[in-house]
Design a protein around this nucleic acid. Structure first.
Lengths: 211, 211
DNA sequence: ACCAAATTTGGGTTCAGTCTAAAATATGAC
DNA sequence: GTCATATTTTAGACTGAACCCAAATTTGGT
């Protein structure tokens, strides 16, 4: 339980790597920093770096991990008389109002997402996460409606909801990156988002006719 | 006009690269073939290969290019009394019935998409294309509704429509890959797709209240 | 046949990522 | 404390994608 010296050192090494990586990426961008450089500055060999972080991207997202289960959680924890669309809408508006860092609505979060946007590799990784989030959402929707996992209907529904959600987040982040005022973003996008999701509402609850 | 020897040779080289790549990829998969090998078998240097195809993925998708403007085209060319959702639905069902290769609904197309699915790199690339397709769709929607490009509403709408479309195509391709009978796929997914898009219909036409 | 422009090539370099075998280090038993 | 064992770290070599340059080749026009 007390975690021996071995375990402690491992955590230190890991933290050292993650932190120096984070600092370097922040000041120079993802593609302008090599893993070798990070390892050197963390006082460790390149092999050790790859031992803790299988890819360079993992080194980046360690400090600010992308929550791939967020959408599913939102839907699962929503009260049972709420449609998935409404649950996601509420989540989005809430995040907007509380200036959630995941949306880039504060100085350093904006810098984080700018770094992501500037690197094709990181953008690709975040698309991958989004895809996993969509699958998780499909799973959650299936659970909620008592359907078996893998039911095509839940996947299509998840696709539409996730597509809308991602587009909304994308618009928000884009504005956050360009340094737009958060409350202006809220005013500008809030109604549009609300409008869109209100139309998505109808598509959630009724199961398709069993024909 | 007649295309001199120079141009002819270029096309030959290009074709040789594309074809040998295609053959190698088909029989061994994307990651099990190196650009060096392709170049060698095409009787050309590695540098020349990269001269014609900036990345290895381009070498793959040259034979079966992903149409990143398809969605936009569908919406643009649809009769003006049709909603975008209906246009996309019709396109999808049409492709399903005519066993469009883009859906993997024939032997070699299924193999193509299996190869894509088995390679993280190729999957990433196809996600990238999908994103561009979504942007193009947003642009087309803006055009259609006389709005200015970049209007957030069109982006959100495109996100939802594109999300649904992609999920549908994903389901179809997955079944095609596992060798399911195309007409069974149609029976199984057709109604679900129709159901989903019919609910998306309402969200297309009415512009948001000007507040 | 010759010159200029375009194409191809060889060689070199960087960087991510993998592998193996050898050093360094912690742990537990005595 | 010391020794055997397990774990971590390291050096070193290697592959594959991708970029760069300068030299060699080929082609088009004359």
């Amino acid at each position: 339980m007390t975690m021996g010296l071995r375990e402690t050192k491992k955590q230190q090494t890991r933290a050292a790597l993650s932190e120096t990586a984070s600092a370097l990426f922040r000041e120079r961008g993802f593609d302008q920093v090599s893993v070798a450089e990070i390892a050197r500055m963390a006082g460790v060999s390149v092999n050790t770096a790859f031992n803790y972080f299988p890819t360079k991207e993992d080194l980046f997202f360690d400090s600010q991990p992308l929550a791939e289960n967020h959408l599913a959680d939102v839907v699962v924890t929503a009260p049972s008389d709420t449609t998935p669309a409404d649950a996601l809408l509420a989540d989005l508006l809430g995040a907007l109002q509380r200036r959630d860092p995941a949306l880039g609505l504060c100085k350093d979060a904006a810098a984080f997402w700018r770094t992501v946007a500037e690197s094709p590799t990181l953008t690709a990784r975040s698309r991958e996460i989004a895809e996993r989030a969509e699958r998780a959402l499909a799973h959650a929707l299936a659970e909620r409606s008592g359907r078996q996992t893998g039911d095509p209907e839940t996947h299509l529904l998840a696709g539409a909801l996730c597509g809308a959600y991602r587009a909304a987040v994308g618009q928000i982040r884009q504005r956050a990156i360009t340094g737009e005022d958060p409350s202006r973003v809220l005013d500008e996008l809030g109604p549009t988002i609300e409008y869109l999701f209100s139309h998505l509402r109808g598509l959630a609850q009724p199961l398709p006719p069993p024909s």
